[in-house]
Design a protein around this nucleic acid. Structure first.
Lengths: 230, 230
DNA sequence: ACAAAAGTGTTTTCCATACACCCATGT
DNA sequence: ACATGGGTGTATGGAAAACACTTTTGT
């Protein structure tokens, strides 16, 4: 299998950096490669772009194959193109990386093509195949920046969530604590960031939280400020 | 020439959106296509990525071919990949767009391969070949955003420039006036945004301006705020 | 002296931070 | 009653906007 050369028109792939939050930790979806090169190594899920589909559709298809998600239950956005001549030992293969943000899936990967896929804490995701370490690092920084200026944080949450759930997203992705009171006021004050669902969380302990759905806003104005370390 | 199909490995191109400011107007570098498809139409400069070069190097090479610039006299950054199946009638050709920002060139395009290239005000750059209208629109928005959070505005200026020159960049790209006094204080207060050259502008009229070089900073913290329209 | 552009000071307004406090629920 | 987390009010500091003012040159 060494030296396999893909058909000439298959020189553009898409790779996905799929983030979710499980147990208050940021996780990324990785597969274990079943073929050379990098046989047995962890890698980002991805595949070649088909003749009739555009880049975004290819990314959506891959995401569906790996997670079973479709519709608009996720955030999917292009990160950029990677094209070092030697990035793939099979030959000159360009890849377009996509950042995907999904809620913690109840039945994560059952019934999908990718039973070989698994969630790995980003803190432990090293030594990936190809240039995927670099792509993952870029994706992490992009996700942190997007939390500042957009409403993507809600894409980490299920359909119904509390303000505290949303705050945990910021704390986990940014890796620093946020004042609950000020965060609450800011989220509520930002128009169409979240809309009340009318329900309340069954309280395990303490006052039950009001629940919200994602609002229609996409940009955060003013942004959530992430300061440099104190 | 109709129906020309590039060699199979040449399916990835880079296209450049080169911005400069001339006569207080934002201009973009366009070529007139000498071959089908879109013969005679304006288009962004670009070309195929060579076997041994990475994407950034290909973009740098194209920029040098079109403008004669090399070294670090410019800003060059990837915008993203475009890959609609029908974006090029010759076949499936992906392109990676780059945003380039250069100072107003003294002898703009003399002695370059591209005597067919010319500066066009962005307000008049419509009806471009391929999907270049879309790429140009994306590049313009990206440039506006980057002026907020980075120091790229200095890349529009020659080696030595005044604070007022820099303010004009913001006003031209954003298309709205800025208070000269507050802008001045903010630029000077931001560490390493600009460094004094020690020289003064020969005054045509009024008090001569102090001149500056680009500083070492790349990110603007705090950012230049571009408010929504009043 | 005057015009014109560069650069500084001052006031006001707004927003982020910090933190005290009240609210709603389970035990 | 009280512990626990959810949510609100308020004082303070710092930065942005608005704008009056001073400085430096050429004519």
């Amino acid at each position: 299998m060494i030296g396999f050369m893909p058909p000439a028109h298959l020189v553009v792939a898409v790779d996905l950096v799929v983030f979710t939050i499980r147990a208050d930790q940021l996780h990324v979806l990785l597969i274990e490669r079943g073929n050379p090169p990098f046989h047995g190594k962890p890698a980002l899920p991805g595949g070649f772009v088909r003749d009739t589909e555009n880049l975004h559709a290819a990314a959506e298809r891959e995401l569906h194959e790996e997670t079973g998600l479709n519709g608009h239950d996720f955030h999917l956005q292009q990160l950029g193109a990677y094209g070092e001549p030697d990035r793939d030992p099979r030959g000159r293969i360009f890849t377009v990386a996509y950042l995907a943000i999904v809620p913690d899936l109840p039945a994560p990967l059952a019934g999908t093509d990718a039973s070989d896929a698994s969630w790995v804490p980003v803190t432990q995701a090293h030594g990936l195949a190809f240039d995927h370490d670099q792509i993952l690092a870029d994706a992490l920084e992009a996700a942190r920046v997007r939390l500042e200026y957009t409403t993507v944080a809600t894409s980490f949450c299920p359909s119904e969530f509390s303000v505290t759930d949303l705050r945990r997203v910021y704390e986990v992705v940014w890796g620093r604590p946020i004042d609950p009171r000020n965060f609450h006021r800011k989220v509520i004050a930002t128009e169409d960031f979240v809309v009340p669902s009318g329900n309340k969380r069954a309280a395990v302990v303490g006052r039950p939280a009001m629940l919200y759905h994602r609002g229609s806003a996409t940009r955060l104005n003013p942004p959530m400020l992430r300061h440099s370390e104190p």
